[in-house]
Each structure stands twice: as structure tokens, then as C-alpha cells.
Design a protein around this nucleic acid. Structure first.
Lengths: 349, 349
DNA sequence: TCCCAACCTGCAAACGTTTGCAGGAACCAG
DNA sequence: CTGGTTCCTGCAAACGTTTGCAGGTTGGGA
């Protein structure tokens, strides 16, 4: 006291107010730090009266435990890393929401990163999460991800890892996915049964497994019903609205009009919708269209769009549940879960 | 060596692989931890050859710096806490995306929490973020938030705080908002100039400042043009689709049909859209409708909806920029930013 | 009186870094 | 041989906790 430190205690310290610590409480009560620590964590060794005194001062000083120090000591964190291609996409934001929900209940917080569909950013972010010593990681990979080495690093360090929706095929980790092949196959079968014969597919990037599977389901369904698979009716592109718009544009300009379109996902289908409307064509009379994901928007366009329900929020919840299980039971055996994706028939087909 | 510890080193430790540390590297090279630390951070005191040797071993051992220990030592983190009502809502997920973008560039990671519009969860999450010693916090408050005490705690600790969109009126902190009153006033004025006289308003929860301001803008615009403000034409509700649907439902059942509706936000407007279509009424001929936010969906419904563009992603980016500025310059003076919200006229009015 | 629980509390080390300071080695000039 | 550089490295403390262990006090029974 009476020193400069004393004078300035409780005011600025480089313009930053010092958080109060266990030691501050201890000094004030002439106790040791260990006793205070035990008192705060309600340890049976500490008598009630002491606990009450400690609690009172803790409140007065606005004490909050320093999670960083706790984590360092315990050598673990209660933080889950979440890495997705783009946060703002309906599917991912719903999934994140589901993850947060489960994590919150279990006492975890989530760090969210996005790769923006860039492989490099995915690698950087993965490393960032490892630096941060997250307790586990939930990932949906980017379109451009070819190698899974950065995920192998995660596994090597025995940090639990769960993929959802877009998994990395050369990494042996837990997954929460839907059966893209089967969903696509039965969706296209439905179109065929409805009488459509000339069915086009707006496919996603060839490298992405889920896109490959959806494409394969489309092809196999056509084959099963002995319909020809025409190159001119399969267009590869990205996963955004713009891609659907462009694909449709090309088809219209080339004058090859299919009777129905099966799009790799909803945004692509929506993009096609717009171009179709601009061309003053009627959905589904002139051209039927079907998406994939059941994004919110599909039920609101006119006519409402037939699509496949990909339970985004449930996928997030399940991924989080599996991850937390892996973390807390210290299991290392990967666990896979395939969720049902149901066809939702609406007015566009 | 030769001890159990020696035998097991490099394998499991309670089924969890030990991360290698600076000390491990130091031992291997018969250097001290400090030298290794300096070598890794490219300190000029260390000669090149040593740096190279350290770098090599670091790579071999898969060394990654323990951010937790660094944070503890430096007494700060590079983590930003983000607290929003609901992650999956278009507006918020775009904003989060913008925040992540800026944070990533500046070397920060973000922890995302949602309050689910619950005051209690907002308080719990705010405390959680403080425990985690985040470097700063970006918040959009819940519908049910009445008191700002939990934010005062944040400020007391001199943790920089930035509100976006929904700010807490009794807390003196930085804000990134739009001028809800002015936007609403001019939007309703536009409706009036277009000739609509009987204009209804589907308002949000009275407690939320932004909703109050939008309501006030509506009322004042009517007054300015000497139109009556009718109770039967103002309906209070929540901010979701369901609320818009219900409000519209009531109006239709009561047989009071306005010529135009100004909704507090897009989801509410979309809900009304659905009910209007069910009633086989034509938009905008039978009833015009206008939303607020320029959610993606508004341009895709039929007819495309007139709305007010609330630049979600930019609001996120600006909030993050301001926050990082506050953190790095150690400023304590709040900074407010009002962004332009432009009326986007489409087919629904 | 002595002994032994029962009950509290404190000491000190540890978690993995960073960093001020001291100091050793090598070299050169005087 | 002395003294002074320059260059590199190590020691030890510190960040805020947690926790095994030791030790102190109190009170009761014999």
C-alpha cells in the first residue's frame, strides 16, 4: 500500500482494468489461494463459513474464473471448433445452430470458421483450431479440398473429429451424412414415374463426393428405366444460384429443353427458377424442377418447389452429440450416422 | 529414461496423445526452453543455424504452439465473442459471416453463441464469454432483453463491446445500426405517394427499440400526410413468419382489409404473403406488401417483394472493424455508425 | 495428562509460454 | 594481459489456476 501499485490498484492498468483473481480474494481475506480455489469450487474440505466469506468477496470484486488458466492447468478446453464452407448458407447456418444448441447444453462453446470453399483457408483454419487446443472439431469440407492431410494431423493428435454432410473420403473419421446416392436415385425415379422422360441434371463440382453420389444416383435411375443418359442434359457447375442460372441460360440458348431438371441443390434450382421465369416458361408445365436440401426458401417460391429434405439442424445436433461423446468417453473408434432424407413433393414437379 | 514415463512417451497418455512442447524440443537439442521460444519467434538474438535446427525438430515433432499458454502469459486472447438471437436467421448468419471475414483477416477467431431470444441465455452467454476472456464482444440483443446490467459488467471490465442492429438502449457502447425510424418513415411515405391510403403495420415486440422506431416511422409518416392512424390496422407480434401469417389471418377473418401492409421485417411479410395467397388475393392489386431487411428470399417470391435493404454482411464487417480498432488501440470511447438502408422497390407494391 | 481423530488450511509444484537480465565465449585492440 | 565488444544462450520469474501432501488446531476420550 502507498506504493504506486497501491495507488493505481482498481483503476486503469494500461487502460485495461485488471480482472480480479483468486489471489486478490485470498489477500483480502488473509487466506491462501488454494483455500479460495477450493472454496469457490465447493470442496468439502472447506468449512461453510469460509465459503460464504469467499463468495461474498468474490462477488464484490466481480471475480470470474480465468478460463484460460483453468484450461492450461487441466490441459483441456471446453471449446468445439466448427469449420464450414460458408456460414451464411441456409444449410450450414441451420447446422451450426443445431451444433450450438447441443454444445451449450453440454457446457461447451463453439468457435466457428469458414473456408469460403477455399482449400488453403480450410488448412489454415484447421491449424488455428489445433493451436487453440479445441476439445474436438466438426467439419464440412470445401469444394476444392482434394487432400485430407490436415485432418490426419488432427487425428494424429487424437482430437476427436466429426464430418457432417461433406466428408473427406480419405480420412477415417466419424461422419453424419445422408445417403446422397439413394436419395438422388429415388428422387429421379419419382420424376420418371411421373412421366418425365427428358430429365436434365445440374451437377455440382465433380470432386465433391456428395455431388458425385447425387450425379450417380441420377444416372443409375435413368439406366434402370432404360432412359438414355445424354451429355447435353448434364451440366457441371458450382453450388450457387448463379450456377443454376447460368446452366439454365445455356440450355435455353442452345434450344435443348428438358422436360424436367434435377438440381444438385436448392440454390442451383432457385437460380434455374429465375432464368425459367425470365423466359416466361411455366413451372411445371413447360419444365419441371426439383432441388435438394429443403432450404426454407423452397416452400416459399411460386410454385413451391419439390425437393429432398436434408435435415440440416438435426445433422448439426447429431454431429455435436457424437463429438461430445467421443470427447468425454475418450473413444477413438469413428462412428458414422446416415440420416434419412425424404422427398418432399410440391408444385414444381 | 527406462521409467514408465519414458516407455510410454510418444504413445497414449490416457488415450490422448500428448502435444509436443517447447520443452520437448529443447531437450532434444540440449537447448533451453527460452532459446527455443526465441528461435521459433524468429528473435534476432538467435543465430540462424540454431533457428534452423529448432525448426526442423519442431516439424518432426508436429509442434504447434499452445495458444492457451501463450494467452495466459500475454494476458489476452485473440478471440472475439459473438452473441446473436438466432444463428440460422438470414440476417444474423450473413452478419456473422461478415464478422468472421474481418476477424480472420486480422488474426482473430470468433466464438458464436445464440440467445434464442431468451434473456437468461443472453446473460449466461455473456458471462461465458467473459470467463473465456475474449478480447471483445459483438452483440445483437434478444427480444426479451430489458436490462443491460450484464453488458455493464462487460464494460466495467473494459472489454470492448459493439452492438449491431439491436442495441441495448441503456448501455453506452459502440453501435452499428441503421436508421430504423427514417427508413420506415420514408418507406411508408413511398407507399402513400403511390396512392395507398389504408396502410396497415405488422409491428414487432414493443420492447425492442428497432421495432419501436419502425412503428414510430410508420405513425409519423401517416400523420405527416394527414392519414388516420387506426388501431385495427396495427398488429403487434413476434418477428417470425408465423407471426405475419397469424396477423394476416386475423385481419382477413375480421374483414378489415388494408390496401397495403408494411411489415416490421421480411419473415413477417413472408408469413403474410402466404396467408394472402391462400386467400387467393392478388399482390399488389388486392393488397400491397412491403418487408424490411432485404432477406434473400424477398427477391425470389412471386411477385418479388418491395423491402428495405439492411446491409447485414456489411453491418457485421463494420462491427468487427470497429471492435478490432477498439481492442488494438485500447480506446474506450464508444463509436457509433449508422448505415444507409435503401428502399428496394419490387413488384409487391 | 496424552493421544488421536476430525477438520481446516497452506505450501509448493505444475500446466506451456514469454522475457528481463545476467553471463559465457570468442574475438579484437591496446 | 587487460578490457571491451559482439554474439548467443540460459536462468528464473511470471501469467492464474488446481491439487497432493503436510501440518496446524480443536476437541473429545481414556
Amino acid at each position: 500500500m502507498g506504493t504506486f501499485a497501491g495507488i493505481f490498484a482498481g483503476t486503469f492498468a494500461g487502460s485495461q482494468l485488471k480482472h480480479s483473481t483468486i489471489v486478490d480474494i485470498a489477500k483480502k481475506l488473509k487466506l491462501s489461494a488454494s483455500t479460495v480455489s477450493r472454496a469457490l469450487s465447493n470442496h468439502p474440505d472447506i468449512k461453510k463459513e469460509t465459503k460464504e466469506r469467499v463468495g461474498k468477496i468474490a462477488r464484490e470484486l466481480n471475480y470470474t474464473p480465468n478460463t484460460i488458466a483453468q484450461n492450461l492447468k487441466r490441459n483441456r478446453t471446453t471449446t468445439i471448433g466448427v469449420l464450414v464452407p460458408e456460414i451464411k448458407h441456409d444449410f450450414f447456418s441451420s447446422a451450426i445452430s443445431g451444433i450450438e444448441e447441443v454444445a451449450y447444453q453440454a457446457g461447451y462453446t463453439i468457435i466457428v470458421c469458414q473456408s469460403n470453399e477455399s482449400f488453403e483457408r480450410e488448412v489454415v483454419n484447421t491449424n488455428l483450431l489445433m493451436h487453440q487446443r479445441v476439445a474436438g472439431v466438426i467439419v464440412s469440407i470445401s469444394q476444392s479440398t482434394k487432400s485430407g492431410d490436415h485432418f490426419q494431423d488432427v487425428i494424429k493428435r487424437r482430437i476427436p473429429l466429426v464430418f457432417f454432410d461433406r466428408a473427406c473420403s480419405d480420412v477415417d473419421a466419424s461422419k453424419v451424412v445422408i445417403d446422397d446416392y439413394k436419395s438422388s436415385f429415388s428422387a429421379v425415379s419419382y420424376l420418371i414415374e411421373k412421366g418425365y422422360k427428358k430429365i436434365a441434371h445440374f451437377a455440382g463440382p465433380k470432386g465433391l463426393v456428395i455431388c458425385y453420389n447425387r450425379w450417380k444416383g441420377y444416372v443409375d435411375a435413368l439406366k434402370k428405366w432404360k432412359l438414355p443418359v445424354l451429355n447435353e442434359f448434364v451440366r457441371y457447375g458450382g453450388l450457387h444460384e448463379q450456377d443454376g442460372y447460368t446452366s439454365m441460360d445455356v440450355m435455353i440458348k442452345e434450344g435443348k429443353r428438358p422436360e424436367a431438371i434435377f438440381a444438385v441443390n436448392d440454390p442451383v434450382a432457385i437460380g434455374a427458377y429465375q432464368r425459367i421465369k425470365e423466359a416466361k416458361l411455366k413451372i411445371p408445365d413447360d419444365i419441371a424442377i426439383m432441388g435438394f436440401s429443403n432450404n426454407k426458401i423452397t416452400s416459399l417460391v411460386d410454385p413451391p418447389m419439390t425437393t429432398i429434405d436434408q435435415p440440416s439442424s438435426e445433422m448439426g445436433r447429431k454431429a455435436a452429440e457424437i463429438l461430445i461423446d467421443l470427447i468425454e468417453k475418450r473413444l477413438s473408434k469413428p462412428k458414422s450416422l446416415v440420416l434419412r432424407a425424404e422427398l418432399i413433393v410440391r408444385g414444381s414437379t
